[in-house]
Design a binder for these strands. Structure first.
Length: 153
DNA sequence: GCCAACGTTGGC
DNA sequence: GCCAACGTTGGC
């Protein structure tokens, strides 16, 4: 299957592109949204390219790139009673939530702010720009991905 | 299976 | 801190 492209949101106060650069890879756990989960379990493949997006930031925007480095596995945080992400409906036999591993690729020299993205004709169909969109993982076209990389250089 | 209430996200 | 948008929950 052809390589896909994704945009993954994170609040930099929680986990930023700098954290990913330091860690090299991270498991994208604690996702509690069915649509995002289904992207991870059904559509994301090792080698897919990812835009790392800073939400709830000043300013919000695309901060860098990564790549999917491991396919979806069971998200361990759903079994941790002390975690905010504990899921009482889940069991080891029937886990509900999954996570992929993301590897650092590049930090953008220039953060591509949300404001800048809105001005870009080639990006006008991006889901992230749609008002009220809260989905933390969204698919991108190859052209959108490449345009963002160009702007970030 | 509908839908109102509620909680969360995220830009501003 | 406000509020619009949207997903989820739960009563019926």
């Amino acid at each position: 299957m052809a390589k896909k492209y994704w945009l993954m949101k994170s609040e930099p106060e929680t986990y930023s592109i700098d954290d990913l650069e330091r860690d090299k890879t991270t498991w994208w756990d604690s996702i509690r949204n069915y649509q995002a989960r289904n992207f991870m379990t059904k559509e994301m493949k090792v080698g897919d390219d990812v835009i790392f997006y800073h939400s709830n930031a000043t300013p919000p925007g695309a901060a860098g790139t990564g790549t999917v480095s491991n396919p979806a596995k069971v998200d361990p945080t759903q079994f941790d009673k002390k975690s905010d992400y504990f899921e009482k409906r889940a069991s080891k036999e029937r886990p509900m939530w999954f996570c992929v591993e993301l590897a650092f690729k590049k930090k953008f020299k220039n953060l591509v702010s949300l404001e800048e993205m809105k001005e870009q004709k080639p990006l006008e169909n991006m889901l992230i720009l749609r008002k009220g969109n809260r989905l933390s993982i969204t698919p991108l076209s190859k052209a959108e991905f490449e345009h963002l990389v160009k702007l970030g250089k």
